[in-house]
């Protein structure tokens, strides 16, 4: 057996250990040695960026960070980038969550970005969690003033920002982040707010694309990749950009493994094993 053949056989047999060790090394490597691998920018990311760029200071924007802490790496960095842009544009931001972890993740985002001189209750507000998922979304769309207290227990009547929120039509843009089936958000908010942008797990892109082409969704950011592209457009490289190094390396590794695995499989098959 040749040396090369032996290696392929070993990889074919013990693929799990090889994969796991390889992935572990490639994930850690860019953390110590930043590679600065260049990235290309997708047209939908540019569309989302331009949409926020066109907002006027004082416009109302609704944001829902509807994911779990475990999925932070998937969509969190992109949400950071997009929220940073919203604060830079000095728009007024209303955050409402339909996932139980949403309010705390919103706080995390606000802590990690530079909100400048924005004041709570005037320029932005965290309305907390509204249980009931799609029904809660429908209820919020029907009357956003249904929520009587914000996340900190302050009555919404006392918050200046909420004085201009009479109906869902007052919002110029709705941004939601989710990692699963995005239909509930699209079903309930489409047609009620002028534009919807989603930050979504790359795995769900094919589910979202029909809505983008149909006009129900204005644009989308595919997870951390979208975040990195957005950071590049803002010229503010952040967490998403650094994660992209590891992503590029790991995906290349996976592709190599698939090739090696197939060579091993076909060698065995042709030998009649």
């Amino acid at each position: 057996m040749s040396e090369k053949g032996g290696l392929i056989e070993v990889l074919g047999r013990n693929y799990r250990q090889v994969i796991w060790i390889g992935v572990l090394i490639l994930c850690f490597l860019p953390a110590f040695v930043p590679l600065g691998i260049p990235i290309s920018i997708d047209k939908l990311t540019i569309k989302a960026y331009k949409c926020i760029e066109e907002l006027e200071p004082g416009d109302l924007v609704l944001v829902s960070p509807d994911f779990t802490p475990g999925m932070w790496v998937e969509v969190g960095p992109a949400m950071n980038a997009i929220m940073q842009h919203l604060f830079m544009k000095k728009v007024r931001i209303v955050i409402v969550s339909f996932y139980i972890d949403g309010p705390v993740l919103a706080e995390k985002i606000l802590r990690e970005i530079d909100i400048g001189d924005a004041k709570y209750g005037v320029d932005y507000v965290n309305l907390g969690y509204l249980p009931g998922m799609e029904t809660a979304m429908a209820a919020f769309v029907e009357n956003p003033r249904r929520i009587e207290y914000d996340y900190y227990g302050t009555p919404v009547e006392e918050l200046e920002i909420m004085k201009d929120v009479k109906s869902i039509g007052d919002f110029k843009l709705y941004i939601f982040a989710c990692v699963t089936w995005p239909d509930p958000w699209i079903r309930q908010f489409s047609g009620k707010v002028p534009k919807i942008i989603t930050v979504i797990s790359p795995a769900a892109i094919s589910l979202v694309m029909p809505y983008v082409s149909g006009g129900q969704l204005y644009s989308m950011l595919p997870g951390t990749k979208g975040g990195a592209e957005y950071e590049a457009l803002m010229k503010r490289p952040g967490v998403a950009t650094s994660i992209m190094d590891a992503t590029s390396l790991c995906l290349t590794f996976v592709m190599l493994l698939v090739i090696v695995g197939n060579i091993s499989y076909w060698r065995k098959r042709l030998r009649g094993e």
Binding site: I19, G70, W72, V73, K108, G261, N262, Y265
Partner: peptide
């Protein structure tokens, strides 16, 4: 809570990659 959740997710990510390796076998 957040790092613990991410750690568990990453742990399953390893399985996911080996699953992809199997899924992409050209049979």
């Amino acid at each position: 809570y957040t790092p613990a959740s991410i750690a568990i997710l990453c742990f399953t990510g390893f399985s996911e990659i080996s699953g992809l390796y199997r899924a992409f076998r050209v049979r």
